[in-house]
């Protein structure tokens, strides 16, 4: 019984992280129907920068916003350099390869400058675990699922009731019409990538006290975040968060009763099957459009 509670709790923590990563993909996809495939590396950038700034003597309260801002600029550059010139319609994958390439460069750069050993960020909330039904969890860990839900509410409100939010969704649905409304489509695309990257960096910083920070931490997190986003159906933020939690919990149970390798095998296997059964996503609706 304790084990089940424990797996569920820690599953919600890692699942919350997947959900936040997936929301970043959702923001980019909603705007330009393409993503930074190395979004996992943006998350890594956030963690690494916050730790590096801390080492440099910058207080966290300054270092964290700095790390997030720097990652947002990284996102801008990715959109401008690697995505926009190569995004030609739904079947083009040039942007995927170019962003993977930049991700590789970033990983290599961080390995050299930051070192290959995993580190972590201290958090005052990682002192004493609290006990829930016999299972132990650090207060900081609870921040992750809580943030995922809070971010969901925030994003929902942003897309629903701000002009910027409406415009950021409009540009991918009908780019020409959006331009005719006075929306600068390119600027919106830049903003969406900056926002998604800032969110990714935030996720990285949030996770830095819990998981091991290293140059290669982004690869699997990014991939799983993307899988979560497409399994849920790229157009539904609520579905994405639910799927993220579900995937995290599933993983922890497999890992608990099996091992890490089995976790990847079954986890990815289930995700592929779901994608094949629901190509529009579990929560996606078919495009409503009459001609």
């Amino acid at each position: 019984m304790t084990a089940i509670v424990q797996y569920t709790l820690s599953g919600l923590v890692i699942g919350g992280l997947y959900a936040i990563v997936a929301l970043g993909f959702y923001i980019m996809w909603s705007a330009v129907r393409a993503v930074n495939f190395a979004h996992g590396d943006t998350l890594m950038l956030g963690s690494v920068l916050s730790i590096a700034l801390m080492w440099a003597g910058v207080p966290l309260i300054v270092g964290i916003p700095l790390a997030i801002a720097a990652s947002a600029v990284f996102g801008l550059l990715i959109e401008r350099i690697a995505v926009r010139p190569l995004n030609h319609g739904p079947s083009s994958v040039g942007w995927m390869l170019s962003t993977i390439a930049i991700g590789l460069m970033l990983e290599a750069f961080v390995t050299v400058t930051f070192g290959a050993d995993p580190r972590s960020l201290p958090s005052p909330l990682m002192g004493t675990p609290i006990s829930i039904a016999g299972a132990g969890i650090f207060p900081h860990e609870l921040l992750v699922p809580a943030s995922a839900v809070a971010l969901l509410a925030l994003l929902d409100g942003f897309y629903r009731s701000t002009m910027l939010g409406r415009a950021m969704r409009a540009i991918s649905q009908k780019p020409v019409a959006a331009g005719l409304m006075g929306i600068d489509v390119r600027r919106m695309a830049l903003i969406s990538f900056a926002a998604a990257s800032a969110l990714g960096a935030f996720a990285g910083i949030l996770a830095a006290p819990i998981i091991q920070v290293s140059a290669t931490m982004g690869l699997l997190l990014g991939l799983k975040g993307f899988l979560v986003a497409i399994i849920a159906g790229m157009s539904n933020a609520r579905g994405i968060v639910i799927t993220g939690f579900a995937y995290g919990v599933l993983e922890r149970f497999i890992e608990g009763f099996g091992n890490t390798a089995l976790r990847e095998v079954l986890g990815f296997g289930v995700m592929i099957l779901l994608l094949l059964m629901f190509p529009n996503g579990l929560f996606g609706q078919r495009e409503v459009n009459k001609v």
């Binding site: 170019s98 993977i100 991700g103 590789l104 290599a108 750069f109 050299v112």
Partner: peptide
């Protein structure tokens, strides 16, 4: 090395 490799791909 790895950095140059990524740059090559890009």
């Amino acid at each position: 090395q790895l950095f140059v490799y990524g740059a090559l791909l890009a």
